[in-house]
Design a protein around this nucleic acid. Sequence first.
RNA 1: GCCCAUGUAGCCCAACGGAAGAGGCGUCCGGUUCAGGGCCGGAAGGUUGGGGGUUCGAAUCCCUCCAUGGGCACCA
Length: 993
Amino acid sequence: MTDKAEATTPPVTDAEPPFRYGARLAGEIEQRWQTWWREHGTYASPNPTGPLSDGFDDITGRAPFFVLDMFPYPSGAGLHVGHPLGYIGTDVYARYLRMTGRHVLHSFGYDAFGLPAEQYAINTGQHPRVTTEANIANMRRQLARLGLGHDTRREIATTDVPYYRWTQWIFKKIFDSWYDEDLDRARPIAELTAEFDAGTRVPSRQANPSGRPWAELDAAARRKVVDGYRLAYLAEGLVNWCPGLGTVLANEEVTAEGRSDIGNYPVFRRPLRQWTLRITAYAERLMADLDLVDWPDSIKQMQRNWIGPSEGAHVTFATVVGSAEGPGAPAGPAVEVYTTRPDTLPGATFMVLAPEHPLVDALTAAAWPGDTPDGWKFGEARPAGVDWTPAAAVAAYRDFAGQRSDRQRGEEFDRTGVFTGAYARNPISGAAIPIFLADYVLLGYGTGAVMAVPAHDQRDFEFARTFGLPTPPVLAPDDAFLAEHGLSSNDPVDAWPVAFSGEGEYLPAPPGAPVLTGLSKADAVKTTVSWLEAAGGGRAARSYRLRDWLFSRQRYWGEPFPIVYDETGLPIAVPDEVLPVELPEMTDFRPTPMAEDDTSDPVPPLARAAGWTTVTLDLGDGPREYRRETNTMPQWAGSCWYYLRYLDPTNAERFVDPEIERYWMQAADGPAGDGGVDLYVGGVEHAVLHLLYARFWHKVLYDLGLVSTKEPFKRLFNQGMIQADAFLDSRGMYVPAAEVTIDPDGAPRHEGEPVTRRSGKMGKSLKNSVTPDEMYDMYGADTLRVYEMAMGPLDADRPWRTDDIVGSHRFLQRLWRNLVDEATGEPRFVDADLDDEANRALHRAILAVRADYAGLRFNTAVARLIELTNFVSKHYGDARRPPRALAEAMALMIAPLAPHVAEELWSRLGHEGSLVREPFPVGDESLAAESTVTLPVQVNGKVRFTLSVPAAAGEDDIRSALTAHEDYAKYTDGKTVKRLIIVPGRIVNIAVA
RNA sequence: GCCCAUGUAGCCCAACGGAAGAGGCGUCCGGUUCAGGGCCGGAAGGUUGGGGGUUCGAAUCCCUCCAUGGGCACCA
């Protein structure tokens, strides 16, 4: 920042003409038109039906277009100039669309539940309801000054009780659904129980571990079975427990460093019973349907990475417990593993289960097999004097693994584990291979068990070396591998420093095994899978990195679950008539503080709400008392469906009227299920979390017939981030950027001391925030809008420079001065036709600006309008006035970018009312065309002279003009013209030898 | 380590494979002005990150390296 930036007084002096476009006049114009728009409901978009349908008949013939901004949370710090970038972008585009015949829906709202709002409330010692409402009011004020054309009748906040009532209702729909793998869609749970009752479907072994027939199960047992099918279910699982926040977090809210996304507190893994949403049922569709949407490739790639599909096979291993051989050894349960390399199955020399694998107890032997090496017994954990059985060792190891699973990434992973005393039978080699537990195998991925092929997998290799297990190769390494590690093809596998995981020649197979010699890896995988399928020991399978979505939080400021429990402890959804389940008023809403090593269950704040935790309901068998669920939903819940509520925000009967939903969401022409929000603009930080969750909810609603499109957001656009310089003093502390001065040689100083410059996100922590309010005062909102759009492409990150914004202000000032007399305020125009040069300038600008607006290239649209303005300044200088047609076109063309000044110009040019729905000027190619063009003539790629020809000249005309040109002979005499390239209207290139 | 994006004038950024420059900031010169600021007119400013290739012609397409930003990373 230079000294100039400190001058917050507007650049206005006594000598300034009364109608010069400066900060004072801009402010007056902006306030006046914002009031006018509000009073006339200019941006209200009528629905086809329902309470918001007034005026719908007037928009006949206008095709609907739904523009959406990502839902912000109302921060207590207020907005800085980086925040509204996307909001301005959508507003410019929406205004352009209104002027080109579209019926635009554009509203706004606040994602006001959740951790950021609650942390702010806790830090300031106020109730979150109070701080949230104050923050929303401040944000609304700041945004209103920008002149955004929102239909404010549709504004919502997730914390509004009438809104979260429907969030709870949708949760109930998810709870009351199950995923039918055969039909590949969600169905109501009632259809599942009907099929069980009719005997047309039998509960899966997983949902019904007892295996007893449905008909013989009592009511509670049946409920347990059905609960195992629900898309929202309670599960005991390893969760990300964050004592610092007093809550658990979703995987997506934990950083790669094992800390909370919010607040950067340490996160620990521990088992807890939590609400979980079965998003993994949709993994395949969430992958495949990315092909249906128009999103940036990078975002699609991030979603694909997150879902993380892999192709492989499930292979079943028979087991024996307590002894490798021996006819007397008892058989254990079969274990299924997931592998992407079934071709290496002959080389599997041991098996590893995740420490929490459900079959561990069944596989743990009563005593160590006779030849068990001491190193397999996890003896380091053995307390003195304890009888060290496999069960004791396994328990000790599970405890150990649970403690340390929060270790940091990027570290060397050591290989720890314990032998269970059980063996598995390798289906190909027939060998008995030991079964270990090790924490490098994760319960949540694949089947939670792996066949370890140490020769060809680095993790298995390291484990085998640590535990002294054999590493027989299945395929011979390629030359590159040998060369890299200084090996020859004769060297034994013991000489390998690492596993060979590439492709190579398969070694001869043992008798009875599938023959892979000479096959590629892909063919070898196929051959082995076919062999396994024939032998009944395996099948092809896909696996996903994606996990089910942990959906409860031990916090106050969220949607309460519409769930109660009866004496069985099983969950029951409350009837729709009881919705909403309102948050109880509490004076102490803080999470219960927990020590990091506390192993007791977290206590949600709602569990302390006296008089709320139990409720008397009549669920069909008379009034009885039920216990409420005291967890709340995560912040993401409310943002999973807000775009649908914008469509029909006041509906008390439905979450959205189907007719209104179809009108705005369904593609006019396209296959069934096509459509979605026409343009969704937001930051790349939501690439995975919000966009994946919202797609999941939308697909559930689609399966249940509640929405008409397969995807919520047809087109996605990521706006860039505005960054700003920050300055560090000699101690490495940030100093306020606004107080930094720049020496003439460019060196930054703060209070006389040199400081170092660093670029970063604008914000409190870097002390480099610039607020929109400051910019309104200095230049007005229109200038801020134009500057933010002119800085660069909408999707690019760009650095904020307060010094640069003056250029956008001067532009609007020149534009104004061309059209309005600065001394009198009278319009400057004549009723006369444009000359050819002015017509060319105007129509070239119209054609370019239209295309730029339509393509979201607002930076180049600004440049073209500046160009035209500069032309008008020169062409119609002080004395002359521009023709009316030119003046009006300029007012209309600037309107999307600078709506206030455009309205003012439009009205001073003699029009009544607003130009918001005036037709955008249409360019004429023939008027824009030059009559003659100057073609550069290159000789061997270098420009040597130019050629003036009629614009319409064809190749032959140009050739004759060229050969007649005096310079032609100069460059070709005595040389051979090898080739002559003529691109009419563009260039001529002579290739000579 | 793997994947993606971006490198153009002091700075922010334009440029269907066709003359390196549309627009803005800054700098310098001039005009207006008592002066400053503002406004107006003009000018300077380049190895398009480096190297190689394709092409009549490359900022643009391909390969490679470098820099910056982002995503993923014990996922069997």
